[in-house]
Amino acid sequence: MATANTVNGRIERARTELSPTQMAAGALFIAALGFTLLFVQDPLVHDSLHNFRHAAGIACH
């Protein structure tokens, strides 16, 4: 194994294993998910998650 079993080693490993395109795609996907959850929260989505938000302890009211 080329890289040591440390956190830095893991970061290095991810860098060599994943192509820049893969990383960019992953980052974009996460950004899209985050954006959806944060800003596309219209009443329809927000209200239909009402029970879940209470069960998860993330409740507005």
């Binding site: 009443p43 329809l44 927000h46 209200d47 239909s48 998650l49 009402h50 029970n51 879940f52 069960a55 998860a56």
Partner: peptide, 19 residues
């Protein structure tokens, strides 16, 4: 609420799984 309780329940169960 903007949606019916049935929808809320179904979406909440699905959200629990996705969570």
């Amino acid at each position: 609420t903007a949606v019916s309780m049935a929808v809320t329940k179904a979406v909440s169960v699905a959200a629990g799984g996705l969570w």
